[in-house]
Write a protein that binds this DNA or RNA. Structure first.
Length: 222
DNA sequence: TGCCAGGCCGGGT
DNA sequence: ACCCGGCATGGC
């Protein structure tokens, strides 16, 4: 089967099983951007508390964050963990937003995809996944997001070699799917969902995975 | 109770 | 070019 057909088959199976995931609904692009940093290696529930603190303090705008001391910022985002380093990373990102786009999110959102991605990656604390999350979920640009779940699901179905890099996996999706923002959005969220529920190391429910029969490679474990 | 969560950086080999 | 420790809270 062609890779493009296989990917769409996987998408259909996941969507059947879990439905729409509604990631980052209605929060507005700036909250999405902040959340993308806060959720680095961190449970989303904790991130929501931190976002709530910021919102309550009136800090959920580029101008407000720009004026906030790093230490004060760290105090507010404490529930998200790694608060000292994340406070610096957020400041780096906001500083960059002001340097390059005059602090105007709309200006950033209308930037060319590749240029914007390189710009984001030049910020200390913004790596590939965070950059791609911002591009896709905050800017509505077709940049596929890869994470540990994505890797595990593809590997378990023997779609990629074990030593694949981030960029290789990203390219695999983008070369074999229509450049559709909504599809990228939902697909990534669904991969996280199935990864959490089934496709984990030593997970006994692995055999019940809705993807089990897609490729005739059911229940690979490990 | 220990392990994990929607990563990334910096220093050492 | 890899490998690894550090960063930290809250839920199960």
């Amino acid at each position: 089967m062609k890779a493009s057909d296989t990917l769409m088959k996987i998408y259909q199976k996941l969507f059947e099983a879990f439905g729409t995931q509604d990631w980052w609904p209605g929060d507005g692009p700036f909250e999405v951007l902040v959340g993308a940093v806060l959720t680095q290696n961190t449970n989303w529930g904790n991130v929501e508390r931190a976002l709530q603190n910021l919102k309550a303090a009136g800090k959920l705008s580029p101008e407000a964050l720009h004026k906030t001391e790093t230490q004060e910022l760290a105090r507010l985002i404490r529930p998200a963990g790694y608060f000292n380093i994340k406070a610096k990373r957020l400041k780096n990102l906001i500083d960059w937003l002001f340097e390059r786009y005059n602090g105007e999110l709309e200006k950033m959102r209308s930037e060319d995809l590749q240029t914007l991605r390189e710009g984001l990656l030049s910020v200390r604390g913004i790596g590939r996944e965070t950059a791609d999350s911002i591009l896709l979920y905050a800017c509505n640009l077709p940049s596929f997001v890869v994470d540990a779940y994505t890797y595990r699901v593809l590997l378990r179905h023997l779609l990629i070699p074990e030593d694949s890099t981030y960029e290789e996996i990203k390219t695999f999706f983008e070369d074999n799917l229509p450049k559709d923002v909504q599809l990228y959005n939902e697909f990534h969220a669904l991969l996280v969902k199935v990864g959490k529920e089934y496709c984990k190391p030593r997970n006994p429910r692995c055999k019940e995975c809705p993807l089990g029969e897609v490729l005739g490679v059911p229940s690979l474990e490990g």
